[in-house]
Design a protein around this nucleic acid. Structure first.
Length: 621
DNA sequence: GAAAGAGAGA
């Protein structure tokens, strides 16, 4: 290697007669494990280079330092170390680039780009190995401008004929969101292999062109190419996002009929696809049949089950995961906490919190937000606020969870204070935040503030109110007894009111005993969803509330005639970490007799003590 | 030397 290294010696007092052959010198250098130590031994390095000690030792050292993330404060030091390497040849440059990029961290990738710029200035001629490396640095940094510059050099220097260079260019444009360029580079490549196709399809899929991506896959098959495991993972996961079961099964068959290796990637992707398509049982079969599983397999299963609202199954899967000694990671915990929130499983949630503390997992980001949400939904608002307060960085999710939690706990004013605080520190609310805010107004009877905030949604925050926000407003008016205003509001809505909107109005009619209006609303509701039990029940209850028993009975009979059954109400309760599910009239529990006796007592107690602001009885459907 | 899987709030 015809390279020479000189290091700045201006500020250092170097002894010129240093003994470079001293084995302790090279030993010391070998044992330096950080840039800090190297720096401490700078004089040592200089001693070596000044007497022409084999420079390979120093290169090796730099390489070993650069293949792990460089601490940001030592960035300029390492950079200066590089810029002092003179007469660098292309092979050395390539290996330095390779080790910088292998750490996959932004600082190192940036250093690689800086090196590239400096090498270009020095007039170093790049080879076919350098371009993929430089493009990889651009990919890691999403650096489109530099990438375009490299692209023009590629064309000028004739490397546009090289398969590897072109595949890296396709990837660059893909990660930078330039689908048009992805296609252009692919089409203009003189040679294409499976990697080109996979990168092309990935480029489409990553930018939301899922269907187009899958179509390209079939185009490739027709071209006579045979897909490999990596390609199949890309296509199966886009199929999962499309929630297209038929297509997913077709791809599953392709994997089987072409005898592709059923590896952990393929297994995870298939499982994810079946879960997203609602085929829980097939997903579980895939999971059971997987020859090897990793933590992502478990995460896919747990969060997939939670997304299908199979929360109990998700917690069971988590138990099994622990029985098998698989260590959960942050993503696992988010899925578990999400399931706890929906089940009201406070004890399991608390266990997860302890696990987080014991394993020194940072309560931040997804984990922190999931924890706040779990406590809020499980009724432990104090704990939710405590976790929220301990979080160093809060985002719209953290605030939304707290606002929604406080709103549903009837703490309207505090919820709104959190909302205003959030705006003050510059966090933009989203649609869900406004669901919380409007719910707070509705529960707190804050009619004027509710109207103002509803108007602010578009006026200030440029958020278009969705059907659920209109629902909140109808609820706000209905709860306040302003039934006519609620009907008027619904009539003026710019979007077609759905069943839940009319349902709110109907519930208000029932409380206010507005039979005629209720009949009118019921008609609307039956037109929207004729098989729904709720409409009939509410109408029947409205008649009952004004003692029109005969009419109430008529509605019930109409339900029977149309074979509409009331879906039994269902509640969940957690005791000692075990979640039990109760349906109305359910006698499956071994102590159901005792339970019903207690419910009776509680009901009597609550009717005796609770008063309702509008003087009506509680709504029992 | 290039291409792969999982994450929350009503």
């Amino acid at each position: 290697m015809a390279c020479h290294i000189t290091l700045s010696v201006t500020s250092l007092n170097v002894s010129s007669n240093a003994n470079s052959q001293d084995p302790s010198v090279s030993h010391k250098l070998q044992t330096c494990n950080s840039t800090k130590e190297i720096k401490k031994n700078q004089s040592l390095i200089i001693k070596i280079s000044s007497v022409q000690h084999p420079r390979q030792l120093l290169y090796t050292k730099i390489i070993s330092l650069c293949s792990s993330p460089i601490p940001s404060k030592e960035f300029s030091y390492v950079h200066s170390l590089f810029s002092q390497i003179q007469d660098i040849d292309i092979n050395l440059f390539n290996s330095l680039m390779r080790c910088l990029l292998s750490s996959k961290c932004k600082e190192n990738a940036l250093l690689a780009l800086l090196m590239h710029v400096e090498m270009m200035c020095k007039g170093l001629v790049l080879d076919k190995y350098t371009y993929p490396l430089v493009l990889n640095a651009c990919v890691q940094l999403r650096e489109l401008r530099h990438g375009r510059l490299v692209h023009s050099h590629v064309i000028k220097t004739g490397f546009a004929l090289d398969l590897y260079v072109m595949n890296n260019l396709i990837r660059l444009y893909g990660v930078c969101g330039c689908v048009g360029s992805v296609r252009k580079v692919f089409d203009r490549s003189p040679e294409r292999d499976l990697v080109s196709w996979t990168t092309l399809i990935q480029g489409y899929v990553d930018n939301g062109y899922l269907k187009e991506g899958v179509e390209l896959f079939f185009e490739m098959i027709e071209d006579g190419l045979r897909a490999d495991e990596r390609m199949m993972v890309v296509v199966i996961s886009s199929c999962a996002k499309l929630e297209d079961l038929r297509l997913g099964q077709k791809l599953h068959k392709y994997v089987q009929s072409h005898k592709l290796n059923f590896d952990v990637f393929i297994g995870n992707a298939l499982m994810d696809m079946y879960l997203k398509c609602g085929e829980t049982d097939i997903a579980l079969n895939v999971f059971r049949e997987m020859p090897t599983r990793n933590v992502i397999s478990w995460n896919t299963l747990i969060s997939g089950l939670a997304q299908r609202r199979e929360f109990k199954q998700a917690l069971n899967a988590f138990n099994e995961m622990q029985d098998q000694g698989v260590k959960p990671d942050k993503n696992t915990l988010v899925g578990v906490l999400n399931s706890c929130s929906n089940l009201g499983a406070l004890e399991v949630g608390k266990w997860v919190h302890t696990y987080i503390d014991r394993n020194q997992i940072q309560v931040a980001g997804y984990v922190g937000n999931a924890l706040v949400d779990m406590y809020a939904k499980c009724g432990s608002m104090d704990d939710a606020l405590r976790v929220f307060g301990s979080m160093n960085s809060k985002d719209v999710y953290s605030y939304t969870s707290v606002i929604v939690g406080l709103a549903t706990h009837g703490k309207a004013r505090i919820a709104l204070n959190f909302f205003y605080k959030m705006l003050e520190i510059g966090i933009q609310p989203n649609g869900v935040t406004f669901v919380g805010v409007l719910t707070a107004c509705s529960h707190g009877g804050l009619i004027e503030e509710g109207h103002k905030l509803f108007a602010d949604m578009w006026r200030v925050h440029k958020l278009k109110p969705q059907i659920e926000h209109y629902g909140c407003m109808v609820d706000l008016l209905s709860r306040a007894g302003l039934t006519d205003e609620a009907v008027e509001f619904v009539k003026n809505m710019p979007i077609e009111p759905d069943a839940s909107i009319w349902g709110s109005v109907l519930a208000a009619c029932r409380i206010q005993g507005r039979v005629e209006l209720a009949e009118h609303v019921t008609e609307k509701l039956v037109n929207i969803e004729s098989e729904k039990d709720g409409t009939y029940i509410l109408m029947s209850n409205t008649y009952a509330s004004v003692s029109k028993w005969r009419d109430a009975l008529k509605v019930r009979r109409a339900m029977k005639r149309q074979k509409i059954k009331k879906v039994p109400g269902c509640s969940l309760i957690e005791l000692d970490g075990v979640v039990s599910e109760f349906k109305k009239g359910d006698k499956a529990h071994p102590r159901s007799k005792d339970i019903y006796a207690m419910v009776e007592q509680l009901t009597l107690h609550s009717i005796g003590t609770e008063t309702f602001s509008n003087g009506s009885e509680p709504l029992i459907v």
